[in-house]
Design a protein around this nucleic acid. Sequence first.
RNA 1: CGGGGUAUAGCCUAGUGGCUAAGGCGCCUGCUUUGGGAGCAGGAGAUCGCAGGUUCAAGUCCUGCUACCCCGACCA
Length: 477
Amino acid sequence: MAEKITPRSESYSDWYVDIVLNAKLADYSPVKGCMVIRPRGYALWEAIQSNLDKMFKATGHSNAYFPMLIPESFLKKEAEHVEGFSPELAVVTHAGGSELEEPLVLRPTSETIIWSMYKKWIQSYRDLPLLLNQWANVIRWEKRTRMFLRTTEFLWQEGHTAHETSEEAEEETIKMLNVYKEFAEGILAVPVLTGVKSQSEKFAGAINTYAIEAMMQDKKALQAGTSHFLGQNFAKAFDVTFQTREGKLDYVWASSWGVSTRLIGALIMTHSDDKGLVLPPKVAPQDAVLIPIYKAKNKDEVLDYADSIYKILAEKFRIVKDYDDTNSPGWKYSEWEMCGMPVRIEVGPRDMENRKAVLVRRDSGEKIFVEFDKISDTLDEILKDMQVALLEKARAYREENTFEINNYDEFLKFFNEGEGGFAESLWCGSGECEAKIKEATKATIRVLPFDRQENIEGTCVCCNKKAKNLAIFAKSY
RNA sequence: CGGGGUAUAGCCUAGUGGCUAAGGCGCCUGCUUUGGGAGCAGGAGAUCGCAGGUUCAAGUCCUGCUACCCCGACCA
């Protein structure tokens, strides 16, 4: 009866690793920093993919695939881009038994190879907008890795779009950020703040980076998705011009946007508890598990009764039968709770006699005794309610841990002595203050939230000069 | 890259230079069980991280190497 999961209160990072390993989402690989995504984890990625992919198609995007190997020289064409990525590149120098003429980089992101192709494909405004997305793996040689949150190789999607005008490209950037927000909240039940990143936190090569930012249960922020307005930076680097409606030549305007397997980390750290994984029904691989309880003398009757419930539920829901004789019911309860099964249906002799079943919610642990004829409708209600309840619970948690702080002493105390969280503070806009704050507290600007940058009155929390922005400060992953 | 730590069965751990390396979890077989991680009996499973050295004798002492973990630096 060894406790398998370290409680969050004891060590949040141990808890996180215990969940990943015990819920069989992923395992360590022989290569440092890489992980193997197991079927239960990959099912989450498939749910993320299928939901997002529909949303991308609905907004006019098509999927394509570009190669993983990129000529090293491509990365060097955009000055900021190469500076941002060079320390974390993995480079192939030998292949086919000899040294290569030019080293090939394993893609850390695909802007360069995609824009080298866009040069061939775009000649006129009639070729625009070009709205492509790709589902792919990328490699970034990070010094310190964590399962799902930051691994050497990870899976993601990257959208790369080309437009006639700056306005249109910016509109696309914001549109896709909103798609991410809708997805994160509607499907993953992870509430997110949207806004623009400070210049020091933006993507290397972008004019502006926008992000969805979530709060985890340890009150740290997690960047869950980004959308970049690239201006004409890559068009200029790869000389991608087009003939305008007026017959002139202009560089193409661009956006790029992505979310990754990091979202699975966000899911885990937003909803799960000390018993294991908790998943919103819309991304859970199954809806419910059916666990019969019987003695030798009534085994057949109980299983028959359980089967009759299964038959009805299987028409509408994704149900797992766990009839395995070698484990006790109690063991199964714990095991399925660990794996994040949204609902458990217990069927024992007493339920059989009363023509009922016991439905148990994973999020609240609530046991609901239900008449045979109402099991299907009740399950439907529970799943819908759980989806909403998880989002609301996470939103309430974030709000409870978000504070307006505009006094620097208080600010320092909040991050250095208190439990931390999100600080809403006024900021003068200078990188110096941002750096000073990071030095003193390890907190960074997560986002300058939309709709809250009007009528800024007051002074910077750090330097007391006139404030330009309202910023969300937090320690982050 | 810097500082610290660890390395014994799939996992966790015991092992004072001395006989055939011990236990728990898990796994396999059988029987009994089953409403919150069941019990009994039997069984399989180890080049003690790698390479050298000291010694009559090394899991244990010494040297070197490697891997992993923690802290720091780094990290759209």
